[in-house]
Design a protein around this nucleic acid. Sequence first.
DNA 1: AACCCACTCAACCGCGACGCA
DNA 2: TTGCGTCGCGGTTGAGTGGGT
Length: 344
Amino acid sequence: MGRSPCCDEIGLKKGPWTPDEDKKLTEFIQKHGHGSWRLLPKFAGLNRCGKSCRLRWTNYLRPDIRRGNFSEEEEKHIVDLHSVLGNKWSLIAARLPGRTDNEIKNYWNTHLRKKLLRIGIDPVTHMPRTDLNLLGSLSSLLADANFRNWSNLNNVLKLQADAALLARMQLVQKLIQVLTNAPTSNLDLTGLLGSASLGNHQLSDLLQLSRLYEGLSNSSLSVHGSIQMPSSLPNLSFQSLLNNNQACTNSRLSLDGDVAASENGTESNGFSADSFVFPTSNTTSPLLPASPDAHTDQTQGPITLSNVSSTSAPFEAWKDLNLDDLSSDCGWKDILDQMSWSSA
DNA sequence: AACCCACTCAACCGCGACGCA
DNA sequence: TTGCGTCGCGGTTGAGTGGGT
């Protein structure tokens, strides 16, 4: 919408602030509050635009700002939060008392991002990088003395990524439960999809969620395999999809044991009541098993959700989130935006 | 001492969101 | 509903700084 004209005005000072300007701004705000940022510089006797004043105050002069180096605890917290929130610096800053979004953003870009890259973690996805020269990354990791206190950082970060995935899976589970009004965690969708209670939009949304769930579970299994799926995640049963013509039409599902050609000529996958394959374009993996015996870390033994959350905070961070936070994640935003029922 | 280069971080810019008339 | 003013956010810039040669 409308652009603030204040910074376009000619004659306003730009660049570094002088101690005198800082003093004027601080004294004025302490006495009167900031009120309208646009009018503030005029009343405070500053030849600056309101935007510049706000920035100077919020990022530097505010009395509750904590200066100095980031502690290890803060670093880990930032990584945790970033794995869930992405580049939502203001949200991250809100969970780190005394730190500003600008400070965290700078620290991320100059330190943390590089650290993650060095140890082979993609700082965007928080997944292990796939474009690595493994030997090169190993040597650089070994050479990185900065991580002496995070000796197991690689594992910790993998767990974080896993935990973030699981958190998302749990969210999808919740959404499915809301959509289907299913009371139990062991969700059996038999009959639900065929029932008259589900409208076209809901059916479509449910299928979309199902694909999302599958994508997440595939990521968890194929990329990491270091985490044990918690029993709280649903053992989804999609047998009723077999009998639902609309679902088959919408999603180009094929039936158990059958292989049906889809419109583009590729084959989709069969599924049964015990396992199923979502109608994604190129995956053949079944839904993750709910068995606690599956997918244990070879060297450290099974990792349960409880001890994952004790070593990494995404679950803690997740508790603080609302759907607005989640919807900022582009893929998730699409999903949530398209849910015609979510606001109903 | 002079220069170069990499790095840091305060500050700026552009945009979207929101409130209000 | 529309348009305007304002705020706040995230990405980017560039001056300052420190280390290496």
